[in-house]
Design a binder for these strands. Structure first.
Length: 511
RNA sequence: CGGGGCGUGGCUCAGCUUGGCUAGAGCGCUGCGUUCGGGACGCAGAGGUCGUAGGUUCAAAUCCUAUCGCCCCGACCA
């Protein structure tokens, strides 16, 4: 950088004044991601527990919003919530071979029960006869209970979901994206036919798409995973994939067609209408706290977190501005009155009446926390019977709004932002999606470490080629897009081998 | 789990190479006063077993060993 002498010193002072420093995306994307989380007080590494995170109140509030949107849709589609043990007998995990090997490396295991004090030191007391695995997912233990509960076709479909945390002993962790413990929901259903199960798989995939696009304002591609990327123990894994600002893909949610694999493993059988006993057809589907990572990486900017109004824990922050005590009294009264009015419209409103903090400092704080709309109220506004409003992103202009139409205007602004964020994310994806037909072009697209893309290219359908492409470019097949995803299904030649290909698939580097 | 980096008040760091004063700074925090339409200022304060455990030494934040945690790259994965 060609900076004039002394400017480093000056900018250092500014950084200190800024109090919270967020790296820019262009300079260090990974650092920026962590800074946004810290600055918005979403979460932090537990530190005392390897690989685990503490989700702080503001982060958890976002998760609660996501949960509420998903849960409502699960109920609307006939599912009930339940809870199963966090500990799973080791023997259960072994019953489905694919499943067992898929999760073997990442299981935490409970081997002891009880503690005892020996010479003032705490020791493990008794070793368990059969160790328990801390659930990495619950197909096995739920399979066990399905076997108990299901006997007739009249018991089907059985449509359950549980909200819980699971543990996978990850070797490399990143807040929200990959931690040892994470929070999620896992749906588990049993059906009388493969057709019914498949319908369920697609129904729930559509729920995820709906929440991603209409609530989180994140456009997604629906698709099927390749054999290589499939859930351990599934016949087929469906997913929604989203493009992050650094060009990498993030799997937003998955929905699995488990076929009869777990039915066989756990002997989950039922008598059909003809009196013949058969194994049930199962599905499972899940969405995790990783979604918050997607929210950060799709919408947020160098000033911090940006949240679509529908998942913002606080919709409006009102900053009062005053000099003298008598101004303060009048301004706060109006601020609280406005807050009451907006709350009647169902909005969560915060009046920031903290003393000893300049308005500007408050603006920056609410901005880095992702509050969609800031309203400023000062003596001039009261005089003119207006307020000043500023959206967090997608519109840099402050707006002056008549007090009388505040409720309507705030609603409009929030709707505008919700849509603008989606449009912006979609435009970004469109601009960063390419069709590639030659191997040299393919390699070229993924050469840049800092900015990759969504690439639609032909693939010959073999795991061998898939792995060779990954080896050469670090890009993997994120999914085979479903026919309704706007991609023309046409045959061609594999970008790597030249062998026949039925359709293009989505390649990207991924999280 | 392999390679690399880093652990010093709440945060960002200086001090370590070459062991030795009472372990410092800025920001933040507390109190008081003045301020307040985009990150305020003055004065007075509080706050640290230098990640942890051993070792070397008359003496360790500093040297050695082990260990834990975090960050980056890789392999693996939601």
């Amino acid at each position: 950088m060609d900076e004039p002498a002394g400017s480093t010193q000056r900018s250092r002072v500014e950084v200190h004044m800024a109090e919270v420093v967020i790296a820019t995306r262009a300079k260090d994307y990974a650092q920026w991601y962590q800074d946004v989380i810290a600055a918005a007080e979403l979460a932090e590494a537990a530190g005392v527990v390897r690989g685990c995170m503490v989700v702080r109140p503001h982060g958890w509030a976002i998760w609660e919003k996501i949960q509420a949107e998903l849960d409502r849709r699960f109920k609307e589609t006939g599912h009930q919530n339940a809870a199963f043990p966090m500990l799973i007998p080791l023997s259960f995990l072994q019953k489905e071979a694919q499943h067992a090997t898929g999760f073997a490396m990442e299981c935490a295991v409970v081997t002891h029960a009880g503690l005892r004090a020996v010479d003032g030191k705490i020791e493990l007391k008794s070793e368990l006869e059969e160790p328990y695995v801390v659930r990495p997912t619950s197909e096995t233990i739920i399979g066990h209970f399905f076997a108990k509960w299901i006997d007739s076709y009249r018991d089907l479909p059985l449509l359950l979901n549980q909200w819980c945390s699971v543990m996978r002993w990850e070797l490399r962790t990143r807040l929200f994206l990959r931690t040892a413990e994470f929070w999620w929901q896992e749906g588990h259903t049993a059906h009388a036919s493969h057709e019914d199960a498949l319908e369920e798989v697609l129904r729930m995939l559509e729920v995820y798409r709906d929440v991603y696009e209409n609530v989180l304002a994140i456009p997604v591609i629906k698709g099927i995973k390749t054999a290589n990327e499939r859930f351990a123990g599934a016949l087929e894994t469906y997913c929604v994939e989203a493009l992050m600002q650094d060009g990498k893909s993030l799997q937003g949610a998955t929905s699995h067609d488990l076929g009869q694999n777990f039915g066989r493993a756990f002997n989950v059988t039922f008598q059909n209408k003809e009196g013949v006993r058969d194994f049930v057809w199962q599905t499972s589907w899940g969405c995790t706290t990783r979604t918050i990572g997607a929210l950060i990486m799709v919408h947020s900017d160098d000033n911090g977190l940006v949240l679509p109004p529908k998942v913002a824990p606080i919709h409006v922050a009102i900053v009062p501005i005053y000099r003298k005590d008598e101004e303060k009294e009048r301004v706060l009264e109006v601020a609280h009155r406005i807050a009451r009015e907006l709350r009647e419209d169902g909005l969560v409103v915060k009046v920031d009446d903290r003393e000893g903090m300049k308005p500007g400092a408050k603006y920056y704080e609410w901005e880095r926390k992702g509050v969609p709309l800031r309203v400023e109220v000062g003596p001039r506004d009261i005089e003119a019977n207006t307020v000043v409003a500023k959206l967090r992103a997608c519109d840099d202009q402050k707006k002056t709004i008549p007090m009388a139409s505040l409720g309507v205007e705030v609603g409009k602004l929030l709707d505008f932002l919700q849509k603008a964020l989606y449009d912006r994310a979609l435009a970004f994806r469109t601009a960063n999606t390419v069709h590639v037909d030659s191997w040299s072009d393919f390699v070229d697209v993924f050469k840049d470490e800092r900015n990759s893309k969504f690439v639609y290219a032909h693939w010959d359908g073999t795991t061998e080629t898939e792995l060779a492409i990954k080896e050469a470019t670090k890009a993997t097949i994120r999914c085979i897009p479903l026919p309704d995803q706007g991609l023309t299904v046409e045959p061609g030649k594999c970008v790597k081998t030249g062998n026949p290909s039925a359709q293009r698939v989505l390649f990207a580097k991924n999280y």
